[in-house]
């Protein structure tokens, strides 16, 4: 096989998604005069920056053979922590550090429990998702924390290269993850946790470190997403981030990362997040009722998974 064909074969899912994206964009720009503007692409990026950040963390977790259902709850509680700190007079930078620290700690707790008990991550993070969400509700008594300092709100709308700062942050996250995930030991060991944790252990690597760090990363990224959302809404709420981990899981799987773990596709995840955003945006432009959105997203996810599965079977038998 020629190197180019091999490159393409390995990235068939992202390439397919990209083709769908381009087709959709072409269709939309024919149907509506307004669509194919750079501004609209920027809009999509802005509206989905926090989704991209969450999905990147989720991709690493899924590649490690686990799943994190508590990401949305971590998002909410770390943002509430930051908001409460600012209301108590803490400077913005400290509040942001606090949010990141809270998110990292909550993620690390997930990883630690999973490593120590060896119980399925699905169950553990289902439990901690209620736990962390409960902490948010207890801390706020269900009342949103609003009127945040201007310096913090800039995080939502601050202008970097003509885009919201969230876009820059999400790109930074992707750029930093590429070397860590693909070109360093961290990524090799995290994916080995999904592929064969016993093999990793027997080659003398302490698996707990990587199990905990991948969940801690997910927590930190959830906190970052929480900061962006809270800054944009100017309000920290206990219900923030509800079901967002599901969106993230959806994008990761659609992007070609297998749920069983062992490997992951960052490129596929990025494109899948964009595609999902594009669909949301396109339906709005076409004034299709938002009731159809979930239906179409679900159908697309099923198609993507079916395509990946068929390809995998074809490989095994062919």
């Amino acid at each position: 096989m020629s190197p180019l064909r091999k490159w393409c074969a390995r990235r068939s899912v992202p390439l397919l998604l990209l083709a769908v994206c381009l087709g959709l964009m072409a269709f939309l720009s024919v149907r509506t005069q307004s669509f194919f503007s750079l501004k609209n692409v920027v809009n999509i990026l802005e509206a989905n920056s926090y989704r991209l950040i969450l999905a990147c963390g989720m991709m690493c977790v899924i590649a490690s053979g686990a799943i994190d259902l508590s990401a949305g709850s971590i998002l909410s509680f770390s943002a509430i922590g930051a908001a409460m700190a600012m209301r108590a007079g803490a400077p913005v930078w400290l509040a942001i550090l606090l949010a990141l620290a809270l998110g990292t700690a909550m993620g690390a707790v997930n990883g630690l429990i999973i490593h120590l008990t060896r119980i399925n991550a699905l169950i553990i993070t289902l439990g901690t998702s209620f736990l962390y969400r409960g902490m948010s509700l207890i801390a706020t008594r269900g009342i949103p924390i609003t009127k945040l300092p201007q310096g913090f709100r800039d995080f939502g709308f601050g202008d970097v290269f003509g885009m919201e700062s969230g876009v820059t942050m999400s790109f930074l996250v992707v750029l930093v993850l590429i070397p860590f995930f693909y070109h360093m030991r961290w990524g090799a060991y995290v994916t080995a946790l999904g592929g064969n944790p016993e093999a990793l252990k027997r080659s003398g690597v302490s698996t707990g470190r990587y199990r905990i760090s991948v969940f801690a990363l997910m927590g930190a990224l959830a906190a970052l997403a929480g900061i962006i959302i809270t800054a944009r809404l100017n309000s920290a709420e206990a219900n923030a981030g509800l079901d967002m981990e599901m969106d993230a899981i959806c994008a990761v799987i659609m992007g070609g990362t297998a749920l069983r773990g062992g490997s992951g596709s960052l490129l596929g995840t990025v494109i899948a997040v964009f595609l999902l955003g594009l669909i949301r945006n396109g339906l709005t432009i076409l004034s299709v009722s938002s009731y159809y959105q979930q239906f179409i997203t679900g159908a697309l996810l099923l198609c993507a998974v079916a395509a990946a599965e068929l390809r995998e079977r074809g490989r095994r038998t062919g």
Partner: peptide, 15 residues
Amino acid sequence: ALDDCKTSVENIFLG
């Protein structure tokens, strides 16, 4: 103790 998702090279050098 091989990781089926990894390549031959990656398996030989795992750890």
